[in-house]
Design a protein around this nucleic acid. Structure first.
Length: 119
DNA sequence: ATAATGACTGGGG
DNA sequence: ACCCCAGCCATTA
């Protein structure tokens, strides 16, 4: 349906630039509904095919790709993100500090990548 | 209007 | 760090 909360979600997701990721809760917060993360997940789950919404850039707050009951799609999503330059650690997780939207500028990102592990 | 659903989240053990 | 549990919320049946 047009003009529904879902449409607001889709618009917000469309604003996520390539190479960046956002969490469901983050999108919900942007729309003024900090507790509507589950609804965001539902909205993306019901996303029609051929949509221009970059749904793959939305993952959970822990930097992990959420999967539906079907269980499939995760590998596809991960591949799409990797194509945008996002790197997953050995546990299949993304560094939200590094790739989280609105994202850091290249200088900041580079600085973080060069930060000493533990001083 | 009530009950169920789900690609979430944060806190606790 | 991992697993489990109880709130939260818009949409649908």
């Amino acid at each position: 349906m047009a003009n529904s909360f879902y449409d607001q979600i889709y618009e917000a997701v469309r604003r996520i630039p390539p190479g960046n990721v956002a969490s469901y809760g983050q999108i919900a917060r942007l729309l003024g509904k900090p507790r509507a993360a589950r609804s965001v997940g539902w909205a993306l789950h019901n996303l029609p095919e051929g949509s221009d919404v970059p749904w793959h850039r939305v993952i959970n707050a822990q930097g992990i790709i959420s999967l539906d009951a079907h269980g499939f799609g995760g590998a596809v999503q991960r591949t799409m993100l990797e194509d945008e330059g996002i790197v997953f650690d050995q546990y299949g997780r993304v560094d939200m500090e590094l790739y989280g939207w609105p994202g850091l500028d290249l200088a900041e990102r580079d600085q973080i990548l060069n930060l000493p592990r533990s001083a």
